[in-house]
């Protein structure tokens, strides 16, 4: 009963939040911020503890597993594009991943972030199912990582178009790769506003960044921290 109620409630609030953000696209109304906020209010009003809620909705979280597997489909569909631009995609996403990890590491040192916060924030630039795996691998806390990934997506969606404008980036490939590398799924969402090509490269950047960060998480990060 609790399970059905929590899953249904989460789904409905998520839909509602998406609608609200669609109507008023103001960063603070982003459904990834709005939905959790509304749910936190809802469960505290109904006297459900966070842990009870998390336990009841574990089936939703479980879907991240098959969702990760499902990424095989866009890669397969875009195979000709991947083959044609493989070099550019790899060079750009390796650079982006290194910048993401090192700048996050350096900045978290500057603000004296606690150790488990730092290990949780390092994989923030990649899509959640992968970020959680990297986080677990290097000793981070999956919940915190999820929140940092969401913040990255929301902030990236806001600053992305400005970065593209400031640097007067012209090619669809560079725009798409930057958005997908910097802000994973939220960036890809933004890339759709530029066009189909930008969105394709953005989703490819998101997938390649996930692979690369996963490798770096296993090899580079443990040596660094």
């Amino acid at each position: 009963m609790m399970m059905v109620l929590c899953i249904l409630g989460t789904y409905l609030i998520y839909r509602l939040s998406k609608k609200i953000y669609g109507k008023w696209p103001f960063p603070l109304f982003h459904h990834l911020l709005l939905a959790p906020t509304l749910l936190i209010v809802a469960i505290s009003v109904m006297h459900v503890s966070a842990n009870q809620y998390l336990d009841a909705t574990k089936w939703l979280t479980h879907m991240l597993g098959p969702a990760t597997v499902a990424f095989a489909v866009p890669i397969y569909k875009h195979l000709p594009t991947v083959k044609k631009y493989l070099g550019t995609i790899i060079i750009s996403t390796i650079t982006g991943s290194l910048v993401a990890i090192f700048s996050t590491f350096a900045l978290s040192k500057i603000i004296h972030l606690k150790y488990d916060f730092m290990t949780s924030i390092l994989p923030r630039s990649i899509t959640t199912p992968f970020a959680i795996e990297v986080s677990k691998e290097i000793g981070g806390l999956p919940t915190l990582t999820t929140v940092f990934v969401i913040l990255t997506g929301v902030i990236g969606g806001v600053v992305g178009p400005s970065v593209i404008k400031w640097l007067s980036i012209q090619t669809p490939i560079a725009k798409g790769l930057a958005l997908g590398m910097g802000a994973h799924g939220a960036g890809t969402n933004k890339a759709l506003e530029y066009g189909e090509q930008e969105a394709t490269f953005s989703s490819l950047a998101m997938i390649f960044a996930a692979f690369i960060t996963l490798l770096l998480g296993a090899l580079l990060i443990p040596a660094m921290i």
Partner: peptide, 14 residues
């Protein structure tokens, strides 16, 4: 995809 990590984000209250 975004729906599946909404519950984890709620976990931030901890």
């Amino acid at each position: 995809l975004l729906l599946f990590f909404v519950p984890s984000a709620v976990g931030i209250v901890n």
